[in-house]
Design a binder for these strands. Structure first.
Lengths: 139, 139
DNA sequence: TTAAATATTTTAATAATTAAAATATTTATT
DNA sequence: AATAAATATTTTAATTATTAAAATATTTAA
């Protein structure tokens, strides 16, 4: 591995490291008063704009096993943030939905940001996603 | 929470989710044949361009406890990828450095990418970092 | 009616982390 | 010089989040 490539490795490592750091900081600023894990917060957000999700849907979204998804729901249910109801039409299926308390929790997460701030964040995140897609096309 | 803000939450959730997905995919493509965790790979990369790191330095970089950093080193040492040597000048300090095998492992990670690919990736990552910094300034 | 497939939960095991304790060394104080 | 305090790393115990596998209940297919 020549010096030019060494430099590339060094740069790439540094950028990746900084990005991870800032991404974590961003998550923290979003969930600054949350003691929930990132994935649990993500799930609350996801449920905010889905009427409900099945456990297998949750598992698929998060690329986890059904057991892990169940465990996530256990935690949120214990906190009164979600409820689980068996579907009448197919009693194998469990609907997972936000409770009133869960709705309020999501509301609280975003109450601290102005509409302008949100727009800026969304716009930046969109560009970040596009850049990752560019990387995807490159490799 | 009004409809406009609902939409913002929805968009933000979706972007965050996609970014997490793509960032994971990126890590996977970088470490596609690695059975090491992300942090272990990161540490290998970091050691590639540092002569050596102390355990506390590793803990600081990764925002972990010294115990966790020790554990990371245990794993890499067990695999023959790093070595630990007490500093003569201060025998409390352990130098952690890549072995020859570790160097080769890092080399292998990047052997599969061309210089052009690396340049594109680095450039995109730099922009991603700048965008995260913009978000940081916004919040 | 029986067998196979499916959804979720439970159980057991594993990996990665923290908090706290332990060990060794260095630095500061007496 | 001796003692106390600080520091670096490791070890131990506990916790959290995940997987694999097993269990339970239900639906679908034969």
């Amino acid at each position: 591995m020549d010096n030019k490539k060494d430099q590339s490795v060094r740069q790439l490592t540094e950028e990746m490291f900084q990005i991870q750091l800032k991404a974590n900081q961003f998550m923290k600023s979003l969930t600054r008063e949350e003691e929930l894990s990132d994935n649990l917060v993500f799930l609350l957000l996801k449920l905010k704009w889905s009427e409900f999700l099945k456990v297998t849907e949750i598992a698929e979204f998060f690329l986890l096993t059904p057991g892990a998804a169940t465990n996530m729901c256990d935690k949120l249910e214990r906190l009164g943030l979600v409820e689980r109801i068996r579907l009448k039409e197919d009693r194998r299926v469990v609907r997972v939905a936000l409770t009133k308390k869960g709705e309020e929790r999501v509301h609280d997460i975003f109450a601290k940001f102005s509409a302008e701030q949100l727009e800026t964040v969304i716009s930046s995140l969109t560009q970040i996603r596009l850049l990752f897609e560019k990387i995807e096309d490159t490799l």
